[in-house]
Amino acid sequence: MGLMKSHFGSHIGLSWKINNEGADIVSSDFPALTMASGPYNYSYIFKYIIIGDMGVGKSCLLHQFTEKKFMADCPHTIGVEFGTRIIEVSGQKIKLQIWDTAGQERFRAVTRSYYRGAAGALMVYDITRRSTYNHLSSWLTDARNLTNPNTVIFLIGNKCDLEAQRDVTYEEAKQFADENGLMFLECSAKTGENVEEAFLDTARKIYQNIQDGSLDLNAAESGVQHKPSTPRSALSTDQTQNKEGCSC
């Protein structure tokens, strides 16, 4: 009896496995499906950095964007942390690698090293605290000095859900953004309002720069990495030929 049972069980297992694999094979026949199913298939990697004063909600923005949740008791960031998410721009899968920096002054020297090679910089202030807005010019100087000229800088006024405590008007910040050639949106990491847009608009702008040819992809330090998918097979045959040549 026991034998029968075990045999039966193994049979079930077999058929399940084959079914499963069958499904995989089906999906691999349709590239679009694989793109959707596998979270790691993408054609570009964009590197972002989030900067701004302490407590303006940088980590919360990141968390809202990657997890679609609001983190209520967010501890101070120590040094830098990072998150990733795959998005789609003009039908291209793009992986965002987002480096969230600490706003505390004592980490300033450390966080400066992370501007290097960022394709996008999200500069965040808190609309309820004027001081964080006043410090923007210093953040902007850092961002301009330490990144590419092509780096897309996006100004974010966070906490726009706290309208009653507003300390910086939209118009004022908009003017600042226009004067400095920045993109600008007011967001709320708490409600999620405009968060998606800020990250995606930045990616769109970067993608547009790539299309225009103003961003050179040929180096890792540009903050963008392109992953061509078609020439790979050709490469692999080359490799094997080489290998055969070697083995002789």
Partner: peptide
């Protein structure tokens, strides 16, 4: 990559 970042930097020298 490390050596490149150390000695060559990004495209056109930025970073």
């Amino acid at each position: 990559g490390f050596i490149d970042a150390l000695t060559r930097g990004g495209p056109g020298g930025t970073p």
